[in-house]
Design a protein around this nucleic acid. Sequence first.
RNA 1: UGGGUUAUGGUGUAAUGGUAACACAACAGAUUUUGAUUCUGUCUUUCUAGGUUCGAAUCCUAGUAACCCAACCA
Length: 553
Amino acid sequence: MSEEKSLNFIEEIVEADLASGKYQTILTRFPPEPNGYLHIGHAKSICLNFGLGLKYGGKTNLRFDDTNPTKEEVEYVDSIKEDVQWLGFSWANELYASDYFEQLYLFAVDLIKKELAYVDDLSAEEIATLKGTPTVSGMDSPHRTRTVEENLQLFADMRAGKYTDGEKVLRAKIDMSASNMHMRDPLLYRIKHAHHHRTGDAWCIYPMYDFAHGQSDSIENITHSICTLEFIPHRELYDWLIEKLDIFPSKQYEFARLNMTYTVMSKRKLLQLVTEGHVQGWDDPRMPTISGMRRRGFTAESIRSFCDKIGVAKRENMIDFSLLEFCLREDLNKSALRVMGVLDPVKLIITNYPEGQTEELVSENGPDEAYGTRIVPFSNTLWVERDDFMEVAAKKWFRLAPGATVRLKSAYIVRCDGFTKDADGIVNEIHCSYLPETKSGHDTSGMSVKGTIHWVSVEHALPAEVRLYERLFKAENPSTEEGDFKEYINEDSLTIIPNARVERSLARATIESRYQFLRKGYFCLDKESTPEKMVFNRTVTLKDAWSKTANKA
RNA sequence: UGGGUUAUGGUGUAAUGGUAACACAACAGAUUUUGAUUCUGUCUUUCUAGGUUCGAAUCCUAGUAACCCAACCA
């Protein structure tokens, strides 16, 4: 009955650990540093970590890895919490690495007492030099042999603020000739006289990632600590510290981070796009951030479905943006309300329809009957899409052109009799005659036409601003192209249509609602929308078979 | 020229010594009052070379390629 879906390699590990009795229950964690907004790559990690907790009856913590006060802000903490919740996940505990600063300090003291850590006076440059290179062994620092007592005093003095930034560091005493560079006496603590967003000025020494992350995992009894591939070299140190400290043995597992075509995924690059004004903010609808995608109209369900489909493995990958669009359309098709909106309006006049007459026509709201119907007003003067008309019909053209017949969605079949142009030669009126016996739902004509187009009544339509988006970059992988990634920014990624016309039912549109503007795509209200001026974002277009046909001709 | 990780269609992901499959993409066709949706079909795959085996994507050997590691970032 239930379809067997194969497990990813992490689920296999979890199932084995559960089956062997190694753990009765699992505990995972999502550990962002609050130094930026979450993006679709984080969504993969969130779905993995929280998904594991859900699937195996375990729990998942949200832990902020806030050990670098100069880069972190509460603004980011707040946005991260909002994004995780919006994605549909609940954490067992909201935790901060900074909550463990005192405990971490005691761990460090423990290492010193075990002669496994020492205070070094060397400068950053000197330490780097003595570290050697991957092919050349490193050399011991002259301070490596300090006594336990001396180290204890010096470390206490570091904490007490007796030294300036960079004057001293605490290092693990491991092996300066290790083939793994991370084992060449890695830094554990550095001095930073900086204000921390949570601990304020209580501390002037801060633990490094390697001395905070694994220890925090251990303190929380995290069973499976899942991170991305670039942390593989850290695992040896992760295990070493846990072993020497003799604390709960959390285990680290690594998977390949998400890469996607036509965008960038590093916080550094995203931050640059924001600060240099290439986009309007972290939640710009073109950004691959969760907040940007949310504003653009993505549903949480579509993002979860995407994360499920891309799988989890250790191989470098580059996912087609089209898979994300597929997941989006798949979800929106099921749930979006159907409405009519004309993006680039041109007048269509029905010459044989009584001037001033209005009919209330019935149109379906959604993909199935459960969505019900609504009334759309019809009259002799309509707005239709400019690109639904051709002065001379192309091959296989099913829409308006002189002599051609089309159905007006939920209304009548009309025949195009002619058109007029303004002084600049732009078509400004399309003249048609309607066939009264073809009224939608009451069609007795037996006629069938190939094309159906959307419309709104000029008298009844509402004006709206519509924003159309295209991919942010012109290159599939801007990060690996020649030169700077910003050279590949698509300058035409935003098109603003100031004066589109939408059907009047949209006056009741809410920010949560998702709409399909018939034949034009999925849309949602933007946060900048006001009752005086509606603003819609196009989330994604509909698949468009005609444009392919047209391009081939 | 050190260490680590990974190689399966155009892109992802499965197959855990026994018929290489699923999804996306692409391409055809059917249905359609959205050129949407839905439905049907087509296309294309095990990095290379040896070996073990009745049988290899999977095991062995040797290559090759890509990515990661020398931040007082995470």
